[in-house]
């Protein structure tokens, strides 16, 4: 093995097991882009099988796809990488439906994938920034708990924001 390889470090493979039993075999360098996995590897060392009871296979797969792209792009030491990553990120979030987006965000948060959380929260923000208050309540299933008149008062006080 070592004779055919020109790299100085051998790539270790980790096995990640999602809540629904689906497993993924990933290079350590890819999986450790997630803070939570990185901590586990550093703290617990030798464990090769990591169980993730809070993420199901579909979303774990997507998170790992993102990690893989970013890990690969970052190993090519060209300065165009930032651009490539940005372009790829755009593609990645472009066609996500809301339900997938929110689940993915929860998974990324749970796995401490900070950069991915940034990307996804930015996407959510861009989706909600132009919405009306009523639409926000509908999206996030929120019931207004203001007393009668209170909401009206906030609107009146900040009328410039509602124009």
């Amino acid at each position: 093995m070592s004779s055919s390889s020109t790299t100085t470090t051998t790539t270790r493979l980790l096995m990640l097991k999602a809540s629904d039993g689906v497993t993924f075999e990933v290079e350590e360098a890819v999986a450790t882009k997630l803070g939570a996995i990185n901590n586990m590897v550093e703290e617990e060392g030798s464990e090769d099988l990591i169980c993730l009871p809070n993420v199901n296979g579909k979303f774990l797969g997507m998170v790992l796809e993102w990690c893989k792209k970013h890990a690969n792009n970052n190993t090519n030491s060209d300065k165009g990488n930032d651009e490539v990553n940005k372009w790829w990120d755009k593609e990645f979030v472009m066609d996500l439906d809301q339900n997938t987006l929110y689940h993915l965000l929860m998974a990324a948060d749970y796995l401490s994938g900070t950069e991915l959380v940034d990307l996804l929260t930015e996407k959510v923000a861009s989706m909600i920034r132009g919405k009306k208050v009523e639409e926000i309540r509908e999206t996030f299933k929120i019931k207004s708990d203001f007393l009668p008149g209170q909401e009206e008062e906030i609107r009146k006080k900040n009328s410039w924001a509602f124009e």
Binding site: T121, I128, I136, S144, I154, R155, N158, A161
Partner: peptide
Amino acid sequence: EILFRLPIKALVKFKSVSK
């Protein structure tokens, strides 16, 4: 994290979503 990324105007408007 999501709200940080919104412009001021949207934030002020969204104060009336809920307490």
